[in-house]
Nucleic acid binder design. Structure first.
Length: 811
DNA sequence: TGACCACAGTTTTTT
DNA sequence: ACTGTGGTCA
């Protein structure tokens, strides 16, 4: 290599590096190290996403320019001098020439694959890339493991025996199938809990064991239980195959099989993806590991990003070894540690470091920050869980009076069940709050029902979804009938739907043939209407035609009202789907996306509310004020964890995750006694509290436990001291007034029906679902009114006016 | 087929 | 304490 070439290479790297001047040195290394395997150990709050985005930008702009000694074309002394001059004194006008000289085979967008775990992360990545790079970024493959695999499978799954229009089963669907399997194998659900069977199967799939291999293994070991489960596994696999369905594990499993066993497919993708990035690598399971290494197997440019200290998903198969062993699995791998934290203060970090230091299985990182020492961590011991909740709320309300937003506060707990006391305290104090997690929108029965209708319309062969909705709303088609038909379907090799449609051919079904026939005709009508329909309109058409909406309206209790809202809310999902310009704006496309996209309600921002969530759901988020409650032995770490060292380390990582969410102030609380699962038990402070260095915390503890919780007016833990006390007291009084008002208005009946139209008995109305009818009676109820309407075609129905209003017209 | 009662389980969660 | 589910009875 000539002297000139050396100068060129150095100048090229420096010129590219200048693009990333805002990053710190380590972050910049992460961006510029483009070639070969790279492990990016990114501590909490170390600007991981920024690095990821800049890295992709760099790949698209300069290719391997920053990480190679190649010189793609002969260079001249003038050019080297130009670059060296540019570094000294960058002139925007000369940037194009600089870019031209520095780029070495820039990656085209579709040659970059960036994989994340959640859709949220994938969307964020895509959006930020597009903001930085414009249109071009759209073709980058930024997606979750599952959606990347579905994309691959939709193209090539026929090589492994499924057809390209396969359906995706969610966990609920899987459960149903397992139940069916248990029943037909004569196994008892109590001896073989569905949860466990699913977990065992998932495990087997993770090891890539076929049912046959699984059975063989346990037969030779003589494990009766496992042999039985193996039989379920076999039948389950067969059923899914016959239904042309894949569960979540299968999506990855079959992609791995496809790539492993079919050279031409494998080579296509290996050639295509010059650069592969995997985010949250500490959360990958074996299958995902296999997938990553298959996809990156061509160019071997695999960059994994993660933090072994934040691995908290062992229970769902994540294998921390994947990140711990990355360097030995990938020879020549480079490792970059991002340890500068931009989020928290030093006391918070030192406290968190103090805890995580006690884990043995880790790579070892020590976070530091330039943010200054900040406040020490507050530890507070209270008498019981409602004291704890009151303390936290008191602190939050004080912060609010000092000008903080409600949403600056997050309360984190180990289990969802712990949210009760906190929720209650918020309600009593009139503090707006939002609980994240719990039952998700797409998990709600009514939403699933409507989706099931759409699935059946899309693909009548979807037996499972068909069974779900055939009798919802009630069509007098009971389980017995469906079972009979299912048997016949299996016998004749037809789908369940075909048997329904030809029910009259079966003497066994003669009693219900007419009803079955009517049902399939309903579906057929809706199928015909799909052609050319606008998806959103079509959805409301389906809601009405199926009678589902009417069913909910009839019930007219608050529960059904909420359900109705959810059913309507689904149409906004369709809107949202169409809005972000999908490749495939059809019903099938929508169902595909919905199957993999389950967190619609990520309305984390927007409303100004105190946020309450589990520590798991807090991962990746940050808040100025964080309260971690329930720091008690037996709860956190949980009972199961105290006897299992691996599990204990996982709990400790979870603690580390929770603590590092805090930007300004961290409060940890424990209660001396707590009611959980109906029992009150005393418990010791969590060992994690004792692992925090004393310098970094202040442990407030009440000398004497209070016997009795005072009623709702007493906020004894407000504890403002000194000269401000009076002022605070006045404010408290004002606040209480507010609270009482709120409470009163909640307790009393809602506001009178000022806005309701005055429909009277005797009037003729038209209902969008029931048709024409006459109002028999109007009875005011609360802020609403109960209507009794005699419809011409469907008989007399009771409707709540507020609910029915949008479906009713006069005359 | 639908209503009602007894009973068990109860970490964490994404796709 | 609470909730969802499964089995039994009308």
């Amino acid at each position: 290599m000539t002297e000139l070439e050396k100068r060129f290479i150095a100048a090229r790297r420096q010129a590219i590096a200048m693009e990333y001047g805002k990053l710190n040195e380590r972050q910049r290394q992460g961006v510029l190290t483009t070639e070969g395997p790279l492990l990016l150990l990114a501590g909490a709050g170390s600007g991981k996403t920024t690095v990821l985005i800049n890295r992709v930008a760099n790949l698209l702009k300069y290719g391997r320019g920053s990480d190679t000694e190649e010189i793609p074309m002969p260079i001249t002394g003038d050019e080297v001098e130009f670059l060296e001059g540019y570094i000294q004194n960058p002139d925007p006008a000369q940037k194009p020439l600089m870019e031209y000289l520095c780029a070495v085979e820039p990656a085209r967008p579709w040659e970059v694959l960036a994989i994340t775990f959640t859709n949220k992360a994938a969307t964020e990545l895509k959006e930020r890339l597009e903001r930085m790079l414009g249109e071009e970024a759209r073709d980058v493959w930024a997606s979750t493991f599952h959606s990347a695999c579905v994309r691959i499978l939709r193209r090539d799954i026929e090589h492994v025996g499924f057809s390209r229009d396969f359906t995706i089963y969610d966990t609920d669907d899987s459960k149903r199938v397992v139940k069916d399997c248990l029943k037909s194998l004569g196994l008892d659900e109590k001896t073989f809990p569905v949860r466990e069977v699913l977990a065992v199967m998932s495990d087997a799939k993770d090891r890539m064991q076929t049912p046959e291999q699984f059975c063989k293994q346990w037969e030779s070991a003589g494990e009766w239980r496992k042999i039985r489960i193996g039989k379920v596994y076999r039948l389950y696999t067969q059923k899914l195959f016959e239904a042309n369905a894949l569960d979540f594990d299968d999506i990855i499993l079959h992609t791995v099989r496809l790539l492993r066993d079919h050279r031409e497919v494998r080579e296509y993708y290996q050639r295509k993806f010059r650069y592969v990035l995997i985010d949250e690598y500490q959360d990958t399971n074996n299958l995902q590991y296999q997938l990553a290494s298959l996809l990156a197997g061509g160019h071997r440019n695999i960059c994994v990003v993660g933090d072994d200290d934040q691995s908290i998903y062992r229970f769902r198969g994540a294998n921390i070894e994947n990140i711990l062993n990355f360097e030995s699995e990938y020879k020549g791998a480079r490792t970059i540690r991002l340890e500068q934290n931009y989020r928290s203060t030093q006391h918070i970090l030192d406290a968190a470091n103090g805890v995580i230091r006690n884990n043995l299985g880790r790579k070892g990182k020590t976070l530091w920050t330039n943010n200054g020492a900040g406040d020490t961590v507050t530890v507070k011991t209270t008498f019981n869980e409602s004291d704890e909740a009151n303390y936290v709320l008191g602190q939050i309300m004080m912060a609010y009076r000092r000008g903080a937003n409600w949403k600056d506060n997050a309360i984190l707990y180990r289990m969802n069940a712990q949210s009760n006391a906190l929720e209650y305290a918020c309600k009593r104090n009139g503090v707006p709050y939002k609980i994240i997690g719990g039952t998700k929108f797409f998990d709600r029965a009514e939403v699933k029902d409507m989706l099931a209708y759409l699935c059946v319309i899309n693909n009548p062969a979807d037996d499972l979804r068909l069974r779900r909705i055939v009798n919802v709303p009630s069509r007098k088609i009971g389980a017995a009938t469906v079972d009979k038909a299912q048997l016949l379907a299996t016998r004749d090799g037809r789908t369940l739907y075909e048997v329904f449609a030809h029910a009259e051919e079966y003497p066994e079904l003669k009693n219900t043939a007419a009803k079955l026939k009517a049902f399939t005709e309903l579906i057929e009508t809706m199928r015909r209407a799909l052609d050319g329909a606008e998806l959103v309109d079509y959805y409301s058409y389906v809601c009405e035609t199926t009678g589902y909406v009417a069913m909910l309206q009839e019930k007219n209790d608050p529960e059904s009202l909420a359900r109705l809202e959810n059913v309507e809310e689904l149409s906004s999902s369709i809107h949202a789907f169409l809005d972000h310009e999908p490749d495939n704006p059809t019903l099938a496309g929508f169902l595909d996306e919905v199957a993999l996209y389950t967190d619609l309600d990520d309305t984390t921002d927007g409303d100004n509310c105190v946020l309450m969530m589990t520590m798991h759901s807090a991962k990746g988020l940050e808040f100025p004020y964080v309260y971690v409650v329930g720091m008690e032995e037996g709860i956190f770490p949980g009972n199961r964890a105290v006897s299992d060292p691996e599990e204990l380390e996982e709990e400790r990582r979870l603690c580390y995750v929770a603590m590092t969410r805090a930007k300004e102030h961290l409060t940890l609380t424990n209660a001396r006694q707590r009611m959980l699962f109906g029992r009150t038990a005393a418990s010791m402070p969590s060992r994690f509290l004792n692992e925090i260095p004393e310098n970094d915390m202040e442990w407030l503890s009440k000398p004497e436990p209070r016997q009795e919780r005072p009623a709702f007016d007493d906020f004894d833990d407000y504890g403002a001291s000194g000269g401000v006390a009076y002022r605070v007291d006045v404010e408290i009084a004002a606040h209480r007034q507010q609270v009482k008002k709120t409470l009163d208005s909640v307790r009393k009946a809602p506001t009178p029906s000022a806005a309701l139209p005055d429909i009277k008995a005797g009037e003729t109305v038209h209902h969008s679902a029931f048709g024409k009818g006459m109002v028999l009676s109007v009875r005011p109820m609360g802020g609403d009114a109960l209507l009794e309407v005699a419809f011409d075609n469907v008989g007399t129905k009771k409707l709540m006016l507020k609910t029915a209003m949008s479906h009713l017209t006069r005359g």
